[in-house]
């Protein structure tokens, strides 16, 4: 296990106070500066960054799937640096224990009492690297954190700092000795991002920038300046959450989510969280597009990352090498868009 943030024994934090939303024009300006700062360290892969940004704005958690070495950690670190918030990282391994993630009670002989030592989960941004390498019990330790924003240690509840965002990664090619994430946990992720190799131009630019005048090709987020404070990020999220969503758009999102349950070749479709995720992400997508209202196009744009990890394909579909994205594209083609 690797922890990059100190985890001192602290008392439980009070719940976050009510946050007032940012005006829309300020909201857009902050997002633009956030993009600019992260792009200084994270080169290319605009779609990946956009999707992570969607989850950040919507206040959800991200599951990133991609082979090693594509900058997943760099992205999260750059994001943490730009947002000026605490960053924690856990390298999941088969021997990782749940308490290694959440924290535990330790006996202090001097004080002759147990003290709570918080785990790396007590951070604003948590990178759970290769989450499928840890057994289900450890993975499940994240459930409470992700869903309820709190950790229970020795019967006491400790709220996690707001904003709290888990960015988990998993490797799609080395499946031996891994523990696939259970459905319940997958459902907690707002979005699943697929990261692929960068384009030729992006890769050349990255090599050029990383190695210019430097000996080691390590990650460098020192050029990223903080442009958002934690309260500002909370206000940003609140602004997105207050965006207007028409009933027809909600209806469209719910119909898409429900259609996944009846689609042939799908054993298990998206639950009610699927519809919620669609609307939350559609709001963020509308903001990224510079609109203060949500359209069906926003729902459709986020449907793949929001739903692809919520589909359980039937063996026949898997034999035919169908992927959830294929199913979702066909499904979107079937669901009528609102016109009234």
């Amino acid at each position: 296990m690797t922890t990059e943030s100190p985890s001192p024994a602290l008392a439980p934090e009070p719940p976050a106070a009510a946050v007032s939303a940012l005006p829309f024009d300020q909201l857009m300006a902050r997002i633009a500066s956030l993009r600019e700062q992260v792009a200084r360290a994270f080169i290319g892969q605009e779609q990946v960054f956009d999707e992570v940004l969607l989850a950040l704005l919507a206040g959800g958690h991200v599951l990133i799937e991609g082979v090693p070495g594509l900058g997943k950690t760099l992205l999260v670190r750059a994001l943490a640096a730009a947002v000026s918030c605490s960053f924690g990282r856990v390298q999941f391994t088969p021997d990782l224990m749940p308490t290694d993630v959440t924290g535990h009670a330790i006996y202090d002989p001097k004080a002759e009492r147990f003290q709570i030592r918080r785990g790396p989960v007590f951070a604003n941004l948590l990178l759970a690297d290769e989450i499928n390498r840890a057994p289900a019990k450890t993975q499940a330790a994240l459930l409470e954190c992700m869903q309820e924003g709190q950790v229970t240690i020795e019967g006491r509840r400790f709220p996690l700092p707001a904003p709290f965002m888990v960015v988990a990664t998993q490797n799609p090619i080395e499946q031996e000795g891994t523990y696939p994430l259970p459905e319940a946990q997958l459902d907690r992720f707002l979005i699943k991002v697929l990261i692929d190799y960068p384009t030729l131009d992006d890769e050349k630019r990255m090599v050029d920038e990383v190695l210019s005048g430097r000996v080691a090709a390590d990650l460098d987020v020192s050029r990223v300046n903080p442009v958002l404070s934690q309260p500002e990020l909370l206000a940003l999220q609140q602004g997105v959450a207050e965006l207007r969503v028409d009933a027809a758009v909600i209806d469209y999102a719910v119909r898409i989510a429900r259609a996944t349950r009846e689609w042939p070749g799908v054993l298990g479709g998206a639950g009610p969280r699927g519809g919620l995720a669609l609307v939350r992400l559609a709001r963020a997508q509308a903001v990224l597009d510079g609109r203060d209202f949500v359209t069906p196009d926003d729902v459709r744009a986020v449907a793949l990352p929001a739903l692809r990890h919520r589909l359980l394909l039937a063996p026949e579909a898997l034999i035919e090498r169908q992927r959830p994205d294929d199913v979702l594209k066909a499904l979107l083609h079937k669901v009528a868009a609102p016109r009234q």
């Binding site: 009933a247 027809a248 209806d251 119909r255 259609a259 079937k334 669901v335 009528a336 609102p338 016109r339 009234q340």
Partner: peptide, 14 residues
């Protein structure tokens, strides 16, 4: 009209 062919009808609130 496209919606006459579609099997999923909008549950319009109007």
């Amino acid at each position: 009209a496209a919606h006459t062919r579609g099997d999923a009808k909008l549950d319009t609130h109007l």
